[in-house]
Design a binder for these strands. Structure first.
Length: 547
RNA sequence: GCCCCUGUAGUGAAAUGGAUAUCACAACAGUCUUCGGAACUGUCGUUCCAGGUUCGAAUCCUGGCGGGGGCACCA
């Protein structure tokens, strides 16, 4: 439809003597302005030396004629917009597609191989709500890619070696714990070790030694504790992934990429990297960036070297066309330098890697830091919200779905780049602009459809003009496309909220069952259900049967 | 000091350079002979400051003020 309008206007502008003017066919924010708006008259005003409304008047008849019965009105508005409203016939025709399960999907990235890395929690620390943010955004970005036909693999990169591990192990050893039992016990040990590292020179020395020893892996007793602690952490993570609805195909560990990363970096000393004070560094200044250490003077690889190793490891297990990495925005600088270095080593690898930063969840009480021990563990948050939703749902399964919907929506409703200030009491509303609002609208619509006793294939009265709800539903495929290209799940979340609101109004104002137009309205309800189901799937929000 | 991000009703957010800047929460006032009230309808209230570009600026440019992040051996 957009292309059709564009073609007609283009042709008409050429006749008027302005063939090169670029203009847009856009959606008016307000549906009362119509389904499409064309700004060609304003855009051509200068070239033609006429005022916009005059040009618009010349364009309107051609558009009206070209669209024929598909348009119910073509009008000039405001400074010179041409507003086009579709007819019932055109809207219903487009809504037919919503009967298909594939409604909203496209093939923009057909068969492309896309690896998405996200969540990235670190064993020996508890998974906190920051990782939750990465997981929720990452899962949705993965699904958006799947919705455009891509072949998607989910990857998770976890830091099972490094100073944080040494700190945790040091503290466990200090407390005489040889068989850690829970992720919390280990997380607490990390916090304790971390504080000791900052406050006690003796502890610092011991932890540094442990850190190096872990990389070497020759101290049997130490490695035994390392293995046990790692297993406990990882299995706690798996419990959370199950709850969150994420399934990773590939797990990468720093203990695996460290050696390869170190080897690659050392191989390129003198060409890409340089030595300085015993450390191996990349001088980012040559590309307008800053210098970072890749291998420390003690010989241990930093995060940057491990990430170089990771890029190669990914390529080895599953060569991709695009490699997306989601992390908190604070890592933007590190990725720039790491990718600059990688570009010097393996340009193709660097060029297909896209770093997608997301903001972090901040507490009203200040920045969260597991070093300080003032974090909210992901498990605690989920638990607390479930307790809250249980007051309204007897069925624990439903309570879980609603709780997850509330949490995920609160993260996905805003653009992923900026921080979310997390107020424990306010952020997880179950009403209004919230996950449960979407779920509830869906549940009610399903309930109506179930209740209807109309025979399949029944027909009924057709209104002269389509409902706003129908017109909104037809936008779904374009909304998905926009979200895909921007890698922005919030576009979908915002749309679904508008859609649910429109459904709720429809539901409140229009009786459905037993009316002469029952079949027609049930068609709308079904289109709404399909759209909401598919939209929620893209967000990774569960769709309860009842609530 | 240098680099990056950011500033929108009381609060949290949205807005490919477009129309009267949306949405939710809060506050206030309403709706029900309920196809499920986690709902619906209405009222109130917003673009940090100063210039500039443009037919048109929350959006782009310059300067200022405020907030956040990063800047060699953490991840």
């Amino acid at each position: 439809m957009e292309d059709r309008i564009k073609e007609i206007v283009q042709k008409e502008l050429a006749k008027l003597g302005a063939p090169d003017v670029s203009f847009a066919v856009e959606w008016p924010a307000d549906l009362s302005h119509g389904d499409y708006a064309v700004n060609a008259a304003m855009a051509a005003s200068k070239a033609l030396g006429k005022n916009p409304r005059e040009i618009a008047e010349a364009l309107v008849p051609a558009i009206a004629e070209g669209l024929g019965e598909d348009a119910s009105s073509v009008e000039i508005a405001g400074p010179g917009f041409i507003n086009i409203t579709l007819s019932e016939r055109a809207v219903s025709a487009r809504l037919n597609d919503a009967r298909e399960e594939s409604w909203g999907r496209n093939l923009d990235q057909d068969a492309k191989r896309v690896m998405v890395e996200y969540t990235d929690p670190n064993p020996f620390k508890e998974m906190h709500i920051g990782h939750l943010m990465s997981n929720v955004v990452g899962e949705s970005v993965a699904r958006l890619n799947e919705y455009s036909g891509a072949n998607v693999m989910r990857a998770n990169f976890q830091g099972d070696v490094g100073p944080h591990v040494a700190k945790a192990l040091w503290a466990l050893h200090e407390k005489g714990i040889t068989d850690p039992e829970s992720a919390k016990e280990i997380g607490d040990a990390y916090t304790h070790g971390s504080q000791a590292y900052d406050n006690s020179p003796k502890a610092k020395l011991e932890i540094d030694i442990i850190n190096t020893a872990i990389y070497e892996g020759e101290n049997a007793e130490l490695m035994e504790l390392w293995r046990k602690g790692r297993d406990v952490s990882l299995s706690a993570f798996e419990d959370l992934y199950r709850i969150l609805g994420t399934k990773f195909e590939y797990y990468f560990f720093e203990s695996e990429t460290a050696a390869e990363g170190t080897r690659i970096v050392r191989e390129h000393v003198g060409t890409v990297f340089t030595e300085s004070d015993g450390a191996i560094i990349y001088e980012g200044e040559k590309k307008g960036l800053h210098t970072l250490v890749f291998i420390t003077s003690r010989g241990t690889p930093t995060y940057e070297a491990k990430d170089i190793g990771l890029a190669f490891a990914k390529e080895e297990v599953w060569p991709s066309d695009v490699s997306i990495i989601l992390t908190a925005a604070e890592q933007i600088g590190h990725f720039k330098v790491m990718l600059a270095a990688l570009e010097d080593i393996a340009p193709a690898l660097a060029h297909k890697t896209i770093h997608v930063p997301h903001g972090f969840l901040r507490l009203t009480t200040g920045k969260m830091s597991s070093r300080e021990g003032n974090v909210i563990p992901a498990a605690t948050l989920i638990h607390d919200v479930v307790v809250n939703t249980l007051t309204r749902n007897e069925d624990p399964l439903v309570a879980g779905q609603v709780a997850l919907g509330a949490i995920k929506y609160s993260i996905l409703k805003q653009s992923a780049g900026s921080d979310i200030v997390f107020d424990f009491d306010k952020s997880l509303s179950l009403e209004g602009d919230s996950g449960p609002y979407l779920q509830y609208a869906l549940v009610r619509a399903r309930s109506i459809v179930e209740k209807s006793e109309l025979a399949a294939g029944a027909t009924s009265e057709v209104p002269a003009n389509p409902y706003v709800l129908q017109r909104l539903i037809t936008r779904f495929p374009e909304v998905i496309r926009k979200a895909q290209t921007l890698r922005a799940p919030h576009v979908v979340a915002q749309y679904l909220t508008q859609l649910a609101g429109e459904w709720n109004s429809f539901y409140a104002n229009e009786r459905i069952i037993g009316e002469p137009d029952e079949a027609y309205k049930l068609g709308i309800a079904n289109a709404f259900i399909r759209t909401m189901e598919n939209g929620l799937w893209v967000l990774g929000i569960p769709a309860p049967e009842r609530m």
